[in-house]
């Protein structure tokens, strides 16, 4: 009996949904960004000229990408040892650790951001502790600072870094490490010359996830960053909803979209190279 439909046709419903509700809108975003004014009559590159010829706008793009880069590095610095410890832990402890890593990821990002508002506040735990030991006179300003946003974002996005690293590190044959040590390399040398290169695919995947998430983390950027620092996501929101300037908002969104895409693509190419390096 002939089946009513082919197996590949099952991808059609989601395909149509994506065509209509992801691609068409994104094409529309590009189309709207190519208009001179908010009346959407004349087309042209005026919005892009406005964005890229103004140091203020470029500064916002730069600080957003810089924030994402700093967040990624910090998340890597503390996330990597955690992932490594996980692979060394006995199975029972691993089950507890994985839950402690996954549960924050499932918890609302607004809640996790709110936690940092409480921690970094004038009456938060850091200021209370420092004052109770008499190390500082007046409470430090921690909330609404660049450092505050970076630390909060790194903590909030850390599970995205740790999970792919755990996968990569678990796939490394422990004999390789042992062989390296038997041949006389110390722990540090073994780590930098064996473990780290072999975990590159997971490391890159984690870095990309954290970078993309940090660059578009609207809630954390606005609540921990405060009104003094503007990042791209809030700028898009402000221009679209508060200023009603859709062409310019579309241009900012395109700039963010393309920047993130470029970083992701470059990192993927580097990733493929690094894989070749490992096998060579």
């Amino acid at each position: 009996m002939k089946p009513i439909f082919q197996e590949w046709q099952l991808a059609l419903p989601l395909g149509v949904f994506f065509a209509v509700f992801v691609f068409m809108p994104l094409a529309m975003l590009g189309y709207v960004s190519l208009h001179q004014g908010t009346d959407l009559k004349a087309m042209g590159l005026a919005q892009y000229a406005k964005f890229f010829l103004d140091g203020f706008n470029l500064g916002i793009l730069g600080s957003t990408l810089w924030l994402a880069a700093k967040t990624t590095l910090l998340a890597l610095l503390i996330g990597y040892p955690l992932a490594y410890l996980y692979t060394l832990a006995p199975p029972k402890l691993q089950r507890v650790m994985i839950l402690l890593i996954v549960l924050p990821l499932l918890t609302s990002a607004v809640v996790r951001t709110f936690a940092w508002v409480v921690i970094l506040g004038r009456q938060g735990i850091i200021n209370t502790l420092l004052q109770s030991y008499g190390w500082i006179e007046a409470p430090l300003k921690l909330l609404y600072t660049p450092g505050g946003v970076t630390v909060a974002l790194a903590q909030i996005e850390m599970p995205l870094m740790v999970l792919p690293l755990i996968t990569a590190l678990s796939n490394i044959d422990p004999n390789l490490r042992q062989a390296s040590q038997v041949l006389g390399a110390g722990r540090w040398r073994t780590f930098f010359q064996v473990t780290l290169p072999l975990s590159m695919p997971g490391l890159l995947a984690g870095c990309l996830l954290v970078f993309a998430a940090a660059a578009s983390a609207f809630v954390t950027q606005t609540l921990v960053g405060g009104g003094q620092q503007i990042f791209m996501p809030f700028y898009i929101y402000q221009q679209a909803i508060q200023a009603n300037d859709y062409p310019f908002a579309a241009t900012i969104a395109m700039a963010l979209l393309v920047s993130v895409l470029v970083v992701v693509t470059v990192a993927n190419v580097l990733g493929r190279r690094s894989k070749g390096f490992v096998h060579a």
Binding site: Y80, L100, R112, W116, V118, M158, V162, G186, R187
Partner: peptide, 30 residues
């Protein structure tokens, strides 16, 4: 080599411990 092993274990333990604390503490504080 003793120092070498010890420093590696210490770095791993301290940073991993900080990471673990950072994962849990904010939720507890809220």
């Amino acid at each position: 080599s003793l120092l070498e092993r010890w420093s590696f274990g210490a770095a791993l333990g301290v940073l991993g411990g900080i990471a673990m604390l950072l994962l849990i503490a904010p939720t507890v504080i809220v």
